[in-house]
């Protein structure tokens, strides 16, 4: 399995926020979802991959080429959808296309028209008049019209209605029929990823919590629900990453899925957590009490 993106000790320091040195790889032929709460560093990471901001330390390799040395070549093969609309608002879609198309050697006008049709956009529309969701669709149309091998998207499903979100997932699955293509996208709507993502990279406070296949994650993490008395034993308490207690019992997340059944015994109920559960308990950490207790 080839690595499409490789980060080696990449870090970035801002005054109030930093990405701690992180190393990870994203695989070719798969969809990787980048998740994390707001402010976890998802956009910063994507910006570094795209060369929009330079990493403080470390090296980024894309398609086996150095990101800093061969940026122009690399970008020919990347389709990028930003979370902001960076197109000229006063132009029509057609004129904007005339500006963007010449940058790409493999620009495909037919593909672009087909996508506009599919997204119900007309080339005559002024960009200013587009809604947030329509702008996102336009961004996608631009990103998918030059036969890119790697699609990178920052929060593509934000601002989209559920109907189009499903359609987008279909579109992504269509792209993935070709095993040479890869997709990396960030989101905090994790239900999208619960469905189609192959790998999940979880960022929290500028650190990488994990970067694994969804299957592995689902095997390792277990959601435990049980009576409060169970938590009194320190050996039980220690296995939880995060616990939410209430008058009627507790709910906790553990990443020791293989041993948990033996530890908690039969008085607790075990279930598979969603990505949202994993994100919630990891982000809050420690113990938290439901409001009802106070």
């Amino acid at each position: 399995m080839n690595d499409i993106i490789k980060l080696n000790n990449v870090s970035k320091q801002y005054k109030l926020f930093s990405i701690e040195p992180l190393s990870c790889t994203f695989k070719q032929g798969y969809i990787t979802g980048l998740i994390g709460p707001n402010g976890a560093g998802k956009t910063t990471l994507i910006k570094m991959i795209m060369g929009i901001t330079r990493p403080g330390t470390g090296e980024i390799t894309i398609f086996g080429q150095s990101q800093s040395l061969q940026e122009a070549e690399i970008k020919q093969q990347i389709g990028f959808v930003s979370d902001e609309c960076h197109y000229y608002e006063h132009l029509s879609i057609q004129s904007m296309k005339n500006i963007i198309a010449p940058f790409y050697k493999k620009w495909d006008d037919n593909a672009f028209s087909r996508l506009l049709d599919r997204f119900e956009l007309s080339p005559k529309m002024k960009i200013r008049s587009l809604s947030k969701g329509m702008k996102m669709k336009l961004g996608l149309a631009f990103a998918l019209s030059h036969h890119a091998d790697l699609l990178i998207m920052d929060e593509p499903t934000a601002g989209l209605d559920p109907v189009f979100r499903r359609e987008l997932l279909d579109l992504l699955a269509e792209i993935m029929l070709d095993e040479r293509k890869s997709i990396v996208f960030s989101t905090h709507i994790t239900t999208d990823l619960d469905r189609i993502a192959d790998y999940i990279a979880f960022l929290h406070h500028g650190r990488l919590v994990f970067n694994e296949s969804k299957e592995q994650i689902q095997e390792r993490y277990v959601l435990v629900k049980g009576p409060l008395s169970l938590l009194e034993a320190p050996s039980v308490n220690a296995v939880f990453i995060g616990v939410r207690e209430s008058l009627v019992g507790f709910e906790g997340l553990t990443d020791r899925g293989h041993e948990i059944a033996a530890i908690v015994g039969t008085s607790a109920q075990l279930s598979r957590p969603t990505l949202e559960d994993i994100m919630y308990f990891t982000a809050r950490g420690g113990k938290s009490h439901a409001a009802a207790i106070t």
Binding site: I31, R195, I196, K214, E215
Partner: peptide, 17 residues
């Protein structure tokens, strides 16, 4: 594997497995 993943709207790794 990829076609089935697309049709079921699930990940490629899942159908592969």
């Amino acid at each position: 594997i990829r076609q089935l993943a697309k049709d079921l709207q699930i990940s490629v790794i899942t159908t592969k497995r």
